[in-house]
């Protein structure tokens, strides 16, 4: 591998890593505050892709702009799922919450198939095939856009979490629900907000992923595996850890893509997931916390 190729992989990897970060940080946030593994996370990302495609085809709305519509839609959807389903279940019983989110994933997948059929589609914009040249590297425009948009959205989420009172309340509830309630945090409301925010991140990532890769209703199974690998590697529930793991895996996938046949890419995630669980179940980047798994 020459220097040029390595530099190219690094840049692409960081851009993809940003996208992985956007999707997996939401998943990690939801696990952290609710102890729920949101199996439906990737299915909802794919739903975001389909909605952006529909908006693009019907109204010519640019996928990047559709994010602005998708965020409020997924906030509401998240609120509805939390209020209508998850809140009704005992959060202590991981069995039932997992089955519930599994059920949601199935329903979303089935509806997508019924409405948009089960064939591969992708979002092809006029600039889909153009590239930009930076320091001698050719980077496809859509990858730059997806990467930058992800970083901007992630930055917004981290500002929300670390610079606002609501964010403090979310982090406090994540650390210790009872203690947070004792100091006056409305844990139920905060939980709903966090879940909705996690889904909004998923929804926003939909158009971005849809611009990069083709998709069909069942692609979410491969994606949720990748995201869970990132989250476990980063330390379940640790947001900064998840973000770091997303960047590392983004780059690793690109580098592996140069050296390995393309179809083996996802295997990298699974090998790292299993390796992590064997060697260090609490993850590599997150704070070491008892019972995080």
């Amino acid at each position: 591998m020459n220097g040029q190729l390595l530099a190219q992989s690094l840049v692409l990897g960081i851009l993809t890593g940003g996208l992985y970060g956007l999707t997996s940080v939401g998943l990690s946030l939801i696990f952290g505050i609710m102890r729920i593994i949101n199996i439906a996370h990737a299915a909802l990302i794919v739903l975001g892709s389909y909605l952006a495609l529909a908006l693009f085809r019907s109204f010519g709305l640019d996928p990047l702009l559709s994010i602005l519509l998708l965020i409020p839609f997924f906030l509401l959807l998240g609120g509805a799922i939390q209020w209508g389903i998850l809140d009704k279940l005992s959060s202590k019983d991981l069995t039932l919450t997992v089955l519930a989110t599994f059920g949601v994933a199935i329903i979303v997948e089935g509806l997508q198939g019924a409405i948009w059929s089960s064939t591969y589609v992708s979002i092809r914009t006029p600039y889909s095939l153009s590239s930009v040249q930076v320091a001698g590297l050719y980077i496809p425009v859509v990858r730059v856009m997806a990467g930058l948009a992800s970083f901007v959205l992630l930055a917004a989420v981290f500002v929300l979490l670390y610079r606002t009172n609501l964010g403090r309340a979310i982090r406090a509830t994540t650390q210790n629900r009872t203690a947070a309630q004792l100091v006056g945090v409305h844990a139920g409301f905060v939980t709903t907000v966090a879940f909705a925010a996690g889904l909004a991140m998923a929804g926003a990532a939909g158009p971005l992923l849809g611009m990069l890769y083709s998709f069909y209703p069942a692609t979410h199974w491969l994606l949720i595996g990748k995201l869970l690998a990132i989250v476990v590697l980063g330390g379940l529930g640790s947001l900064t850890g998840t973000f770091a793991a997303a960047l590392v895996l983004g780059v690793a996938e690109q580098v592996a893509g140069v050296t390995l046949p393309l179809e083996w890419g996802p295997m990298l995630f699974y090998v790292l997931l299993f390796g992590t669980l064997i060697v260090r179940p609490q993850g590599f980047f997150g704070a070491v916390r008892r019972g995080s798994l």
Binding site: F31, R35, I37, I39, V98, G225, L228, L277, G291
Partner: peptide, 13 residues
């Protein structure tokens, strides 16, 4: 060897 979350993730992947 750990609790339920890891089991769900491993079986799914």
């Amino acid at each position: 060897r750990t609790r339920a979350a890891a089991f769900v993730i491993v079986t799914l992947t």
